[in-house]
Amino acid sequence: MKINTRKVLSYAFTYVVWIIVTIVTILPVYWMFVISARSRVELFNAPNLIISSFYTQNYTNVIYDRTFQSYMMNSVIVSTGNAVLVTALALLATYALSRYDLVGKDNIFFTTLTQRMAPPAAFLLPLFLLYTQVFAFGEGRARWDLYDTQIGLILLYCVFNLPFAIWLLKGIIDGIPVELDEAAYVDGATTSMVIRRIILPLAAPGLAVTLILSWVFAWNEYLLAATLTNFNARTITTGLAEFVTVTGTNWGEMAAVAMLTLVPSLIVVAFAQRYLVAGLTFGAVKN
């Protein structure tokens, strides 16, 4: 009987803690949703959590805004382009790092890890100088440089996404038995055939996770996009920050934009949740 009471108490404790944690996690996000559903006048009443009437104008104002549309398009193009590029290149690179005895392999891993974890702030000035001074051709109106282009951003995001993808895929490709490759080589297959016919199908789930997570990292990036674009290639995260700097912030519309930014992330949580831990620890911890 005594044991039973203890068990019930410990379950109750677990539930109480987790219900509190869940509320603490969800309430801030919900509060933002509430703000996005209110008109400017309603905001300054005493805070309450009930949405009495959904004020859609915050969303419609934003969605029909030309600038916002172009920001959104840029974000989609840059993240998708970057994720596809990164996954394809990382597959080749990781296959090489996994199957070939390359001299100085671990130095490559150290360098890439540093690039993944380096503060983006340290990259601001170097990349700004690189994009405006070094990779600039022509003068005057015919001048062309990587600053404020989508290609520039796609290349830029490789700095942190490519190392991430290489580290994550290393564990996955190591998990594919080498004997399969060897057998194919004995049968006269070329390297490209081995990668396409053996590695690609077997690593497909891992590649999908890499693609999705790289996409989210590129989508979420703010600092580099804010300094290395000016108008043409601005992304949605920089758009969100612009709401605050303008005098007299329209909190409702800002909340609406923020809600639109986090929708893709929530979809990812739903699909890739199981692989998130491996992804964020470079494949070191798996569940």
Partner: peptide, 11 residues
């Protein structure tokens, strides 16, 4: 519990 992890830092 996983939700905050994937939200954009700026958001």
């Amino acid at each position: 519990h996983t939700v905050p992890l994937m939200i954009a830092p700026i958001a």
